[in-house]
Simulated scan of single mutants.
Amino acid sequence: MATPLEHLSLLRWQIAEGHALDSRDTFPGHVTTSAIVLSPDHARILLIDHVVIGRWLQPGGHWEDAATFHDSAAREALEETGVQGLRLHPWHQGTDLPFTIDSHDVPGKPARAEPAHIHHDLQYLFIADPAFPLVAQVEEVHAAAWKPIDELAGIAPTAFARLQTVPLP
């Protein structure tokens, strides 16, 4: 297993080589996007119980055609959770700069002839009101729920650590 710095070096190399990072058929790695959806007071985070992975994660998935990467992340959050009133966190200042990049190992899927590879996950911050109902996308998600923000520490430790420096909107 490679270290986070090795993964980011791989991402930089793939960018320099002109790899089609937006294609899930690009190896050794390709881009995914995810949404770190916070309550306005930053006390809770919206998580999904992922069917395939079998644990709670932030909403996200393979990049699909969108005007921006954060639009792709927002679409994943909406599809997987039905979250309402989703808006990009002011931290982004209206740009498409990711809050964090979490490049991580993904096991291969022999049934798809897919080798082990890397997901370069572009993570974006969003705000939404937890008072609105959620509707989990049952094909991919067992459940969607608002959890205490500390849950993020075990899921995306880099994002959790960085979040400690982000002021409330």
Rank of each mutant, 00 (worst) to 15 (best):
L38P: 07
A43F: 01
E140M: 10
G60H: 08
A111E: 15
F69H: 11
H120T: 07
T158W: 01
L78A: 14
P130V: 07
V37R: 04
G54M: 08
V141A: 05
A159E: 01
A143K: 00
I45E: 00
G54A: 05
R44S: 15
K147V: 04
G61M: 10
G85E: 04
W146H: 09
I127C: 13
P110C: 07
P110Q: 09
I118S: 13
D105H: 14
Q58D: 07
L86W: 03
D150G: 10
D121T: 15
R87G: 13
D129W: 09
Q93K: 12
P130M: 03
D65Q: 13
D102S: 12
H89S: 00
E140P: 00
E140I: 05
S103V: 01
A159G: 15
V83D: 04
K109E: 15
R44G: 03
T81M: 04
T100E: 09
A153V: 07
P133V: 11
F132L: 11
I53K: 10
P98T: 04
R75E: 15
I118D: 11
P40F: 06
L97F: 11
D102M: 07
K147Y: 09
A66C: 14
D96E: 05
A74T: 06
P59H: 03
D105G: 13
I45Q: 01
P107A: 13
E151K: 02
Y124W: 06
G108C: 08
T100I: 06
G60W: 05
H119F: 15
V83N: 04
I149S: 02
E114H: 10
G60Q: 10
K109V: 15
H89Q: 02
E140R: 10
V51A: 11
Q84A: 12
L122T: 03
L152G: 03
P59M: 03
A67D: 13
D96K: 03
V37S: 05
P133I: 11
A136F: 08
V138W: 08
A144Y: 04
E140D: 11
A145D: 12
E76R: 10
F69I: 01
H119K: 12
A66R: 13
L88P: 08
D102A: 10
W63I: 12
H92C: 10
V51E: 12
H142F: 06
L134C: 09
D129I: 12
D96P: 04
A66F: 08
T158V: 14
P133E: 11
A145I: 00
L152N: 02
V83M: 06
D65I: 12
A77W: 02
W146T: 06
L47W: 00
H70D: 05
Q137P: 00
H120Q: 13
V141E: 00
L46T: 07
P98G: 01
V141Y: 05
I36D: 01
T158L: 15
A136G: 05
D121F: 00
P98M: 03
W56N: 06
L47G: 04
T158Q: 13
A66P: 06
V106S: 06
S39K: 04
A159R: 02
V138Q: 10
L78P: 01
A116F: 03
W56P: 00
D105I: 07
A153W: 02
P40L: 04
P110L: 09
L152H: 05
A111D: 15
W146V: 09
